[in-house]
Design a protein around this nucleic acid. Structure first.
Lengths: 156, 156
DNA sequence: TCTTGATTGAAATAGTATAACATCCACATC
DNA sequence: GATGTGGATGTTATACTATTTCAATCAAGA
């Protein structure tokens, strides 16, 4: 296991993510097709943001026929369902830790080990919205990404 | 003039940005060479984030010999001096409104007219840092970008 | 003058993402 | 069961963003 962060039962993470996804899609009448499910599983293979072409390589390693649109279409679906997030500063994708509800997420990305933790702090979002409102600006989406060192990498 | 935001004397913006840049570089013993200065001027041609290849096209339109590294190197320098910001969610670059001091900036980007306003609200940065600290995470850089509608585009 | 280091020029390539069109499949309807 | 419809996928090509590498040039100090 490559993670530097606290050890945990990662299979449980993956399993939870996949079953939640099944439930969410079923409730919405959306189809979690095999490609989509597999891409979600691959995104959840680690707690690090993964690039689209890394996902593509993995799909191909499965023996599946795949081209860039294959993975981008799957990601588009998963993003629309809130099952994954896009990390803008890395052009990479990360499984969403709390996919059931709408939420404004923030990310803590470790420059050392690459892991990303997801926060959902409403006061960060509301601070942004408040200052935006003062400028007459209506916020629709927020990108909040902090780069630095995670707890494990600081001690090391 | 294409901006939907409040009208203003944009030549003054550009002039101020360029003279501040001269001063900042001089004070630091850094060289604001012709290419760098021209790229800064082009970035300031509007209050919208500009893509690197759009800058490249403009450099070429000047009659200057230019390749991608030309503009990326200039941008790298300007970013290092805090004279421009990179907008991660657009892969684009924006003149910094307050280049003299170190600061944590936030951006309000209008999806309609493309203009971006820069905020420098310490409480947004500190809210991020506070939650990060609770997670044992040390923040080194923050990316805060809000997408939505600016005042002008809302009324329209 | 010499030399050293930063800057720029130039060519190639890597990495990220989308467009366009064909094909297939599931499902509803007849 | 045949047919039609729309969503999903396959496939090829291309657009957009960024970096690597090495050569040439320039500026400033010894």
């Amino acid at each position: 296991m490559k993670r530097n962060a606290a050890q945990h039962d990662h299979r449980k993470c993956v399993h939870t993510a996949l079953s939640t996804a099944e439930a969410v899609c079923k409730a919405r009448g959306e189809k979690l097709t095999p490609v989509r499910k597999r891409v979600l599983e691959l995104v959840w293979a680690s707690h690090r943001p993964v690039g689209a072409y890394a996902l593509l390589d993995s799909l191909r390693a499965d023996g599946r026929s795949a081209a860039p649109p294959t993975v981008y279409r799957a990601l588009e679906f998963l993003l629309a369902q809130g099952l994954v997030h896009r990390v803008e500063s890395l052009n990479a994708y990360l499984g969403c830790a709390h996919p059931a509800a709408d939420h404004a997420a923030q990310f803590l990305i470790c420059r050392q080990c690459g892991t990303a933790a997801e926060l959902e702090e409403t006061d960060i979002a509301s601070a942004i919205d408040r200052h935006a409102k003062r400028a007459g600006f209506t916020v629709e989406r927020r990108t909040v990404e902090a780069m630095g060192l995670c707890a494990a990498c600081q001690t090391a």
